[in-house]
C-alpha cells in the first residue's frame, strides 16, 4: 500500500495504474469532501530516510497515556482513546466535529523494523514515531573488484 513493490515481482502494469490513481486521488483529496467511513483514522504521513522511517500523525487533545503503539515485523499499530470532556455529559451540544472513543490503525511499512529501536514523541498533539531497519536487513554496498 505504501510503496510500490514492482521491483520484486517484475513490472506490473495494474500496480502502476493503481499507483497513478492513488496519486491523482491524493491531488484532489483536499478539494472534495471525502465520503465518511473511507478515511482511515488517524491520518498519517510517512518519511523515509537511510535505513529508517518516520511516521507522523495528528492526534490533538489526546494525552500521552491514552496512546498505544505496537510494532511487529513490518507492521505498526497506532491505537488510543479520545475521552469526551468531563463537563460535556449534561451539556447541550451545538456542534460536534471531533470524534470520541477508541481507534486503532495498522500500517504496513515498506520494510521490517527493529522493535527495540522505536522512538515515539508526542508534542502539541502530533505523534512522531521513528523506526529503524534492523542492521542485518540494511542494504549493503557490494564492491566490484577489477580483475
Amino acid at each position: 500500500m505504501l510503496l510500490s513493490s514492482a521491483g520484486r515481482l517484475g513490472w506490473d502494469p495494474f500496480l502502476e495504474m493503481r499507483r497513478m490513481q492513488n496519486e491523482v486521488n491524493r491531488l484532489f483529496a483536499d478539494y472534495e469532501p471525502r465520503p465518511a467511513g473511507t478515511t482511515a483514522y488517524p491520518p498519517v504521513n510517512l518519511w523515509v530516510g537511510e535505513g529508517s522511517l518516520v511516521v507522523t500523525t495528528e492526534l490533538p487533545g489526546l494525552e500521552q497515556n491514552d496512546l498505544n503503539i505496537a510494532v511487529h515485523d513490518s507492521t505498526l499499530t497506532i491505537g488510543g482513546t479520545r475521552k469526551a470532556p468531563n463537563n460535556g455529559q449534561q451539556a447541550n451540544w451545538h456542534r460536534q466535529e471531533r470524534a470520541y472513543g477508541s481507534f486503532s490503525r495498522t500500517l504496513e511499512l515498506p520494510f521490517r523494523v527493529d522493535p527495540d529501536k522505536v522512538q515515539a514523541r508526542f508534542t502539541n498533539g502530533v505523534l512522531e514515531i521513528e523506526l529503524q531497519r534492523p542492521e542485518q536487513d540494511k542494504p549493503r554496498r557490494i564492491e566490484v573488484k577489477a580483475s
Binding site: E58, P60, P85, H94, R95, Q96, G125, V126
Partner: peptide
C-alpha cells in the same frame, strides 16, 4: 475542527490545532 457545547454557566469551544 471544533466542538461547541453549552453547560448551565458557560459555553465551551474545543478547537483542534495539532502541531501548534
Amino acid at each position: 475542527a471544533a466542538d461547541i457545547y453549552e453547560t448551565g454557566e458557560s459555553i465551551f469551544v474545543l478547537a483542534e490545532m495539532p502541531g501548534v
